Simulated assay, not measured.
Amino acid sequence: MAQPDIAELMEDLELVRNAVVGAGIIATGFFRQDVKTWTKDNATPVTEADFAVDTFLKNMLTAARPDYGWLSEETADDPIRMEKKRVFVVDPIDGTRGFIRGEDSWTICIAVVENGVPVVCVIYAPIRDELYEAVVGQGAFLNKERLERRHRLGAGPIIPAPGAVHRELEERGIDYVRGPALPSLAYRLVQVATGVLDIAVARRGAQDWDIAAPALILSECDHFLEDVCFGVPRFNKQEIRHGALAAMSDLTLKDDVHDVLRKVYGCPAA
């Protein structure tokens, strides 16, 4: 595969960064207000803020890059995206439940995926004033400061996880600290890159828009995000759902964590 044009990708990063900041202003206008909510067919909530942000981002990004595909949690899927060299993969508000509860760690996530691989991304947590960004091969940054691979010193590894995963890990006698519950999966995953967490996991069923952006942040920090059933995720395929996932800065617990996730959640058909 030909190497991506870095100059083009840097232009995409500038576009996506501007878009996500504008989207953050829109979303913040709804935050901690009496926002309208609905329940989707998969029993997850969606709000008028999700739709407003999605509309803003789609209009801005597709007008600037009409030859790119579009894949978003809040837009009906158009299979033509799979014919495109590049596609925007968007989660207008990741962590909607936390947004509704008034928690501050929700994010807006945008990735540019090229030939199944994320090559540009921005993850923005407006209330925490944290903007994560990356271009493939150019490193990852938090508020313009380079994120360097680092290992947290102190007690056992910090691992947030659902209760069933905690029970299995504890039954194996693994010495670790239960991490904080963060409703935004993208935010949770990138905390492995910052060193706040040592391992972050996700139950089976995460979709492209949940993980494409944090996957690039992690890889640019020399960390690992893997589907425990199928390996390194690929994006913009017909099937956009993934098996259980694990991101880790230290591979010493990889076998145990992957085994536990497969035991708890199983694996979908290939």
Rank of each mutant, 00 (worst) to 15 (best):
K85P: 01
R86N: 12
V89Y: 02
V89S: 03
D91I: 04
D91N: 08
I93M: 06
T96L: 02
T96P: 01
F99Q: 05
F99D: 00
I100K: 06
I100P: 03
R101A: 15
E103R: 06
S105W: 00
W106C: 02
W106I: 03
W106P: 00
W106V: 00
I108K: 00
C109F: 02
C109I: 03
C109T: 13
I110P: 00
I110G: 01
A111F: 08
A111K: 06
V112I: 15
V112E: 05
V112R: 03
G116F: 09
P118Y: 04
V119N: 04
V119H: 02
V122N: 01
I123F: 01
Y124E: 03
Y124W: 11
Y124N: 10
A125R: 00
P126C: 09
P126A: 11
I127W: 02
R128P: 01
D129R: 14
E130C: 03
E130K: 14
A134E: 03
V136N: 01
V136D: 04
G139M: 06
G139F: 07
A140D: 04
A140F: 02
L142I: 14
L142M: 13
L142R: 10
N143W: 10
K144Q: 15
K144I: 10
E145V: 15
R146I: 12
R146G: 07
R146H: 11
L147R: 04
L147Q: 05
E148C: 08
E148F: 11
R149F: 14
L153R: 14
G154A: 13
A155W: 12
A155Y: 13
G156L: 14
G156C: 14
P157N: 11
P157F: 05
I159F: 12
I159T: 10
I159Y: 05
P160Y: 11
A161C: 13
A161G: 10
P162V: 12
G163R: 10
G163M: 12
A164G: 06
A164K: 13
V165E: 06
H166Q: 13
H166I: 14
L169H: 12
L169N: 10
E171I: 11
R172E: 15
R172H: 14
G173H: 11
Y176N: 12
V177M: 12
V177G: 03
V177K: 13
V177I: 15
R178H: 09
R178E: 09
P180I: 06
A181E: 08
L182V: 15
L182P: 00
L182Q: 01
P183S: 14
S184R: 04
L185T: 04
A186E: 00
Y187S: 08
Y187W: 11
R188I: 03
L189I: 06
Q191K: 15
V192Q: 03
V192M: 06
G195S: 09
G195D: 06
L197F: 13
D198K: 07
D198L: 07
A200L: 06
A200Q: 05
A202I: 04
A202Y: 04
R203W: 05
R203I: 03
Q207S: 12
D208K: 04
D208S: 08
W209Y: 14
D210A: 06
I211G: 01
I211C: 05
I211F: 08
P214M: 08
L216S: 05
I217D: 01
I217H: 02
S219T: 10
E220I: 07
